[in-house]
Design a protein around this nucleic acid. Structure first.
Lengths: 200, 200
DNA sequence: TCCCTCCGTGACAGTCGCTACCATTTGAGG
DNA sequence: CCTCAAATGGTAGCGACTGTCACGGAGGGA
């Protein structure tokens, strides 16, 4: 969970836990890829990963979490908090997203892209994903409020973060329609348009 | 549901159908109000409404639809299409929302508000609701494309509608936090801020 | 090194949302 | 009326998820 920043010399127990999580997720994603998300049962995943049902649900509270669980949001917030003060909130958010993407390896990016596309394509996953995005929206609102010295419930703050997240959602739909497109470029362009006041 | 505009002389069959739908929904919403959404089972609703499980799911494909089904989106699109041509897309969307709200009765408004608040408060409902909103986003994108003579997959079009829907989502969160607030005023203000370029 | 504690695991039973299928009833129209 | 299509009800079953409880192995102290 909170082991993304550095590695605090994990015990055997913690290592097994991280490995178990990865094993389950890999088998799950492979099966989803091969035969589709809905056609794949949790039973099939636990058979493939050779764990009990109890264990599966201990690692992933829902089947959807096999696809959705990651730590992009906290990284984005932390990147946002360290943006130079002269940027406007929208500019700072745009820069934050680019910062986080830049720190990811090629495999991580490919994995993110695959999970995003799968998430947008399957209704049940999409709903859960959107809910996750709007949670992020509230966290982002707190960060923006902190940065601008406003109240987190300030209408202007909420409107701004709402628009930003809305743009991100629009980008993910575009990615679904054109799978060859580059997520990073697309999001940067879209944020640029928001910055420019949504001219058309 | 769709008997607010006019009444095209329905047969007995259609009338019973509409009445059945309303009966089920009323019992459902009452039970949700009394004991919570998750604590209420479909079984309890069908017992209260005195219908079979088959019938329940024929009217409402999922339990969530008891709360979420309405026809706001098509009304908003049709209102948008008849906005004066001199308005910018964001201005036209803002005006459309106000038009639709203005045509609703007090009871309809109260009902909408209750369902919105319930929808935002319960995770499962919120996810489904957000998915519904993003479907609306795509329909809206088509309408905006039509109005501006652009391609529906045009990035600027998608970014704009994404931002608008994002703002709407932000407003619904605000409504959840302050139940006494007025949804119409809130949304109008928020759209005004988006129109003004999200200053803060 | 041994022992004790506690965390992670597995097995099982059960709930609930939802689907598929079939028999029965009921409104619509000739 | 009588027939057809649509709506309803009943039943069986699947799959996601929960709660409980006994077992085994990791971790830390004596």
């Amino acid at each position: 969970m909170s082991e993304a920043t550095d590695r605090p010399a994990l015990g055997l127990r913690e290592r097994k836990k991280a490995r178990m999580r990865q094993v389950i997720q890999e088998h799950g994603l492979r099966l989803f890829r091969e035969q589709g998300y809905e056609a794949t049962t949790v039973q099939q995943i636990i058979d493939a990963a050779d764990v009990s049902e109890s264990t599966f649900f201990r690692y992933f509270p829902t089947k959807a979490d096999v696809v959705l669980l990651d730590d992009f949001d906290p990284l984005a917030v932390s990147a946002f908090l360290s943006q130079p003060a002269e940027l406007t909130p929208v500019q700072a958010l745009r820069a934050s997203f680019n910062t986080v993407f830049a720190q990811m390896s090629d495999t991580e990016m490919a994995d993110l892209k695959e999970r995003t596309q799968l998430g947008m394509a399957v209704p049940e996953l999409r709903a859960a994903m959107l809910d996750q995005l709007t949670s992020a929206m509230r966290v982002l609102a707190d960060a923006v409020a902190l940065r601008t010295g406003r109240n987190p419930t300030d209408m202007a703050v909420r409107t701004l973060t709402g628009a930003v997240v809305g743009v991100a959602i629009a980008v993910e739909f575009l990615l679904l329609e054109d799978p060859t497109a580059d997520l990073v470029t697309l999001l940067d362009e879209a944020m640029g348009q928001l910055e420019a006041g949504l001219q058309l």
